[in-house]
Design a binder for these strands. Structure first.
Lengths: 348, 348
DNA sequence: GGCGAGGTCTACAACGATGTAGCCTGGCCC
DNA sequence: GGGCCAGGCTACATCGTTGTAGACCTCGCC
């Protein structure tokens, strides 16, 4: 069996039509310099006439490189990851790479599988953003037979290049922004007090640091657990905080969707933002600039993270310096104040 | 040269360790039945011991199938497409397929390139959602050497299976919903009067039909052009409509992000929604359920579109009935009323 | 005792490209 | 005139798998 796809033209066909060897076609296609102009033209004419395209699958098998990199993220339906994927795809494209996206759902088993699974044969390397793995899993990244760039804050000290956000400093600055506005009872939506690792823990750490800087007591009751970082869980967390009657006058959402969920609850309860409660998020997704009120947030340097991750991965793939020590890059951040903290008087 | 990736184990290695031929290893891996239990165990033990994984690139070359399908969308940073991609990936995964996402940016040249480009060798078929192509480009889908399922409303009568939304009926029902609330001056955000094809034109058509059904005059001045379907353009379009002082009492956003952009402008201008102006969108992205006010919209059957598209494509790939006529599937829709039309009295 | 029908396994060629080695021609130098 | 080099091209093996054909064995049955 094994019929060829109708219309699939191979180098063989081109070679036959141009009256040269198959290798000469390969040489033309790959820009090998020592070919007479006349020969090159014949081959190019044959390629054009037959509509030939090199078969990348065959080329990959032979070359041992695919030109594809993997990007493992929890879910694309979360705007932060969708926007990150967008940025990674663009950055990769500029460097001649194709991106294969894998959704892990934030499920441990899938996150582990992605590291070794079949699809790794399709890719030259992996940009890896785990959510379920923790510091104890650092060894899972050991002895992989492909380069890997780690994103996020679940695992440190892994044998891999690592690109992170300024979680602590970003959250600290966001909290400082709220404190500067005179707020003192600042709740944290998504701040599970038992969480000790990951972005959540680091951002809470930044939050606590800012409180300490300003002599404001840290009250664990103000940490509102949210489970998954979705709008619905942010909304629920906010509702529980309000129900607990803690005198909250500001909210730090550990991500924008959590903050937007919180805004939703505040909206339903007709609580004035920022009049009674000011809200700030983290991630600066596009949606934040258009919500009502517009959402103050921390811009985490998403573009920078994407391009850096692709660059680091590409360096490893090309093996320029195989023994190079693993690098850790922390992206720049910026607090972006909008209506949800400044009110209408602030930026449009 | 061509060093093997460190640790890359092949069937050869497994065969040597198990003391069988390489083909027997292949047979075990592929579940060929006529193998003695003892042999199978030896092979499986060797596989486990060496950590062998089949090389999908080589398998693809030999089989002529890759198990990957392409999904070409304009941009992932638009929530509708991110959520669609999420659904397509899940549907594909359930059927044992991997999805390779390609962003065209809605740029004509990239949309054409995607049809023939190198990456088609990586995929067995393509789910194709063009934005820049029009009806005159139907022939571009002719004579492709891979199966293709078309999404969207840019091209009809193309030689391909086609999955669409209920654009006309959905917009008609949405408009009817506004009319039922007593609104008569219904503006359309994103409704370029010169646009004659695509989702925009069809939705405007449904809008016009609903007006006609109710004896409400159609006023072209109420069509607010928006260019790209992004929040910012929706906001600008809304601003222009307000500035024109047309007595607008309702807005049909041709997509949710356009409607959310419109809501943003209304929020900035402190215009009561739905008190003075009611707003409804189209797409039912997750964000719509959490905006302030929550956004009424048309649920377009995104899941159904994704699973149907994958199923149709898979049928073509497997070539069960190569001559089967091209099918056209229209997904079910539903109007989802929320606060932006019903007000606070409506659903939470 | 011979024969057909499985069952079990293997050798070989192929998928479509590229790396390596080597052939041939011509020109140049000593 | 022999040796050498560069340019231009080709043959062949190879990447890791799977399809095909067939070898060999055992069994059951006429």
């Amino acid at each position: 069996m094994n019929r060829r796809r109708s219309g699939a033209v191979t180098m063989h066909d081109v070679a036959a039509r141009a009256g040269v060897s198959i290798k000469t076609v390969s040489n033309v296609v790959n820009g090998y310099p020592y070919i007479r102009a006349e020969t090159r033209e014949k081959v190019e004419a044959a390629i054009a006439a037959l509509g030939y395209r090199v078969n990348v699958v065959a080329r990959n098998l032979r070359r041992g490189r695919t030109g594809m990199i993997g990007l493992a993220v929890p879910v694309l339906s979360l705007p932060y990851f969708a926007e990150l994927a967008d940025s990674v795809i663009r950055a990769a494209e500029e460097r001649g790479l194709t991106v294969l996206i894998e959704q892990t759902g934030g499920v441990r088993a899938r996150e582990l599988e992605v590291l070794h699974g079949q699809r790794r044969h399709f890719t030259d390397g992996l940009i890896y953003s785990p959510l379920a793995l923790g510091p104890d899993d650092a060894h899972e990244l050991d002895g992989l037979d492909h380069p890997l760039v780690l994103l996020g804050e679940r695992i440190f000290d892994a044998p891999a290049d690592h690109v992170t956000m300024s979680n602590v400093e970003g959250a600290r600055a966001a909290t400082q922004h709220l404190l500067d506005l005179g707020r003192r009872r600042i709740a944290v939506v998504g701040g599970d007090p038992h969480e000790t690792v990951g972005a959540a823990a680091l951002r809470v750490q930044g939050y606590a640091a800012a409180l300490a800087d300003n002599g404001v007591p840290f009250d664990p009751a103000l940490l509102g657990d949210a489970g998954l970082w979705r709008r619905a869980s942010g909304a629920q967390s906010m509702a529980r905080l309000l129900d607990a009657d803690l005198g909250v006058d500001a909210v730090l959402g550990l991500s924008d969707v959590l903050a937007l969920g919180a805004l939703h609850t505040l909206h339903l309860r007709r609580i004035d933002v920022p009049g009674r409660i000011a809200v700030i998020g983290f991630d600066d997704i596009e949606e934040a600039a258009f919500s009502a009120p517009t959402l103050s947030t921390v811009h985490p340097g998403r573009e920078q993270i994407a391009t850096t991750a692709v660059d680091l991965l590409l360096e490893r793939i090309e093996g320029r310096d195989p023994g190079a020590p693993f690098r850790r890059v922390v992206a720049d951040f910026a607090v972006v104040p909008r209506e949800s903290t400044l009110g209408r008087g602030g930026p449009a």
